[in-house]
Computed example of a mutant assay.
Amino acid sequence: MRHVIALDVGGTGMKAALVGSDGALLHEARRPTGRERGPDAVVETILGFAAELRAYGTEHYGESAAAAGVAVPGIVDAERGTAVYAANLGWRDVPLRDLLGERLGGVPVALGHDVRTGGLAEGRLGAGKGAERFLFVALGTGIAGAIGINGVIEAGAHGSAGEIGHVVVRPDGPLCGCEQRGCLETLASAAAVTRAWAAASGDPEADAADCAEAVRAGDPAAVRVWRDAVDALAAGLVTALTLLDPRTLIIGGGLAEAGETLFTPLRAAVEERVTFQTVPEIVPAALGDTAGCLGAGLLAWDLLATEVSA
């Protein structure tokens, strides 16, 4: 059975799959990145994991993987196949495509940014299926986005399109890692809500999920923290929809797991801010933590289709 290898590399763990031509996950596996052993060890873990997946596919499906796709965090140069920078993995200019291709016997390898890769899967297979234009926004430790047009993710001229987390929504706000103040992700990410709720509740162990639960219980302090985050998020999203005019706005990541505790006030806050803009359908992501693997598989199949057409 023809299949591809898909790898979704996170800061601490990796999700992997063998993906069929119809997008089905034929085999799934997980593994720690081993980042505590240093950046070179992370690369070797990825290469070894991919080789094991290739061997599994040969044994169980009668042939070796036709290609591989890998999604990684940080700054990615997909054209050169290089992981340019990933702070949480200690990477700078890692030629991951070439290294994987060599380890996998010369098969073609596609490299993508983790959020844009997950957005590709959501657009084609998940919550954005059928929408010719969509914006996928992941609310996790940070905030990032993916711009989808006719089933393809727009990466931008320099590979950094969709970085909505660094849109400034509160110019006098907290300092961001990018050295601006008041970036969206400093105010509305899961990490930002965790920080705010830990301070407001006096519990250093409290996190964003605890805040959402307290909101549902009617805790006034939690409601204030949540409202501040939702207001900031709505401001950033209205900027994005003003520029992009998407048909569908897909929200994923850890904060989206709060469900209607997030989506009901968020939809209302967006609608309050628009003037001439058309409010898109605002929906939760559908694929959960499989989006990255599915997207990496789509990257691999797209690469094979491009090579055939060429």
Rank of each mutant, 00 (worst) to 15 (best):
T141I: 05
A16V: 05
E260W: 07
T82C: 04
A258C: 04
W197E: 01
V137Q: 10
L294Q: 14
G128K: 02
A127K: 00
V169E: 09
H166C: 06
K129T: 14
G126R: 07
L298N: 03
T58Q: 15
R92S: 15
V94D: 01
I75R: 13
A305I: 00
A110E: 14
L47F: 06
G62K: 11
I153W: 04
Q277E: 15
G140P: 00
L294W: 02
L7R: 10
Q277I: 08
L299F: 11
V42G: 08
G292K: 06
A157D: 12
A214I: 01
V308G: 00
G142I: 02
K129F: 06
P73V: 08
E260L: 07
C178K: 02
R35D: 05
R227S: 15
Y61P: 02
E257W: 00
A305W: 00
G23C: 12
L303S: 08
L26N: 09
A234R: 02
I282L: 12
A291F: 11
L237A: 09
A240D: 00
L187D: 02
R267T: 13
L244G: 10
R30L: 07
L249C: 07
E52Q: 13
L262P: 06
A286N: 02
L104F: 08
V107N: 04
L243W: 12
V4T: 05
G105Y: 10
E281L: 14
T117W: 01
A29Q: 14
A161M: 04
D210T: 09
T278S: 13
D289V: 06
A110H: 03
G34W: 03
I282N: 02
S64I: 00
E28W: 00
A256M: 04
G292D: 09
M14Y: 08
V109C: 11
G159I: 03
A51C: 01
I46N: 00
G101W: 01
V283Q: 06
A291Q: 08
A87S: 14
G81S: 11
